[in-house]
């Protein structure tokens, strides 16, 4: 197995897409953190001068000073060192999940599209071992991405801290902050196995990429339904069945489970907080153990399904 992983690793290292996506993810992350620093400065300035606070485009009216204060405190807590390490890891998922899906689909599908699957399988590698090696290699690649984000946050964290607060840096909470990248790495597995399953099913990268990106986009859109509901439905009012079903569906997605898992030990994720405001707490369970079980379940389910499909199918011509 280690030989197969070494071979896969050699390929991934030499493929331009891996490095391009890693670079893009880092750039996006830096821009996101910079945006958060700017937002904090904007809030502080507005609160100090008593000016109106600018809200998100979805909000019908500007946030109150109290809401601005809460948001500023929340940002300060996350940008403080070492909490910023965990925050950076969570922020990296915004682009990271898409890039992981893209890389897994393209590199996972290339053995089908280029015809190299034949050459590999005729070396006496079992199909199960081939798939496990691919899965572990992508997980290793994801680990490199997580490590890069963590190192960046560790190195750049003190600067971000100095922009967010005048308090001296303390290492309190370092252990918890460092656990977030580890959780992030674990949360990559269900995405990797899901995309590998789609690749094996479609026998090419294109459809797997399309479906993978589509599903991730649906996760995001499902998440966006909550703030819309928050605006439309006052607390305690009856929530239409369709929205209840939609939130149920959202709560079993990989994205929601990963979000809860990454926020282990924190009171609420953004989605769960919004759900509680409109009385849908029961639809959006925020238990990290449940989330971990879902992520493990998806990993096993998709890996098993991919293995089953690969084992029973003929490998003919390019596929």
């Amino acid at each position: 197995m280690h030989r197969l992983i070494a071979a896969d690793w050699l390929k991934t290292r030499r493929y331009w897409l891996s490095w391009t996506l890693l670079g893009l993810m880092i750039v996006i992350l830096v821009l996101q953190i910079n945006g958060k620093i700017d937002r904090l400065a904007e809030l502080e300035a507005a609160l100090a001068s008593g000016a109106e606070i600018e809200g998100s485009p979805l909000e019908p009216q500007a946030p109150t000073a109290e809401a601005g204060l809460v948001e500023a405190e929340w940002l300060r807590e996350n940008l403080r060192y070492p909490a910023v390490i965990g925050y950076a890891a969570r922020l990296a998922t915004n682009s990271g999940w898409f890039f992981l899906i893209l890389l897994t689909a393209v590199m996972g599908g290339e053995d089908y599209t280029r015809g190299t699957l034949r050459s590999l399988l005729t070396r006496g590698i079992g199909r199960g071992r081939y798939l496990m090696a691919r899965c572990l290699t992508f997980w290793l690649v994801a680990g490199v991405g997580v490590l890069a984000v963590t190192l960046l946050a560790v190195a750049g964290g003190p600067y971000v801290h100095s922009q967010a607060t005048d308090d001296p840096i303390s290492l309190k909470g370092l252990g918890e902050a460092l656990l977030v990248p580890v959780r992030l790495w674990l949360a990559c597995l269900p995405y990797i196995t899901a995309i590998l399953f789609l690749v094996v099913l479609a026998r090419q990268a294109g459809p797997a990429l399309g479906v993978g990106i589509g599903l991730r986009a649906m996760e995001i859109l499902s998440g966006l339904v909550l703030p819309i509901m928050e605006i439309l439905i006052s607390s305690g009012a009856d929530v239409p069945l369709i929205f209840r079903l939609e939130t149920h569906l959202f709560s079993v997605t990989i994205g929601y489970s990963a979000d809860i898992f990454l926020n282990w030990g924190r009171a609420f994720t953004e989605a769960a907080l919004t759900a509680s405001k409109i009385g849908l707490d029961s639809n959006m369970p925020a238990s990290p153990w449940r989330a971990a079980a879902f992520l493990a379940g998806y990993t096993i389910l998709f890996l098993g399904a991919a293995m089953w499909v690969l084992r029973r199918r003929d490998v003919t011509y390019k596929g």
Binding site: E110, S119, R123
Partner: peptide
Amino acid sequence: VGAIVETPAFYPYLSGSDNLCIFAHI
């Protein structure tokens, strides 16, 4: 067994030597 089935398939972004390395690793 050594085999070529239809047109030999390789990774075009790797050198000839690296392509052989992939199979050698295995």
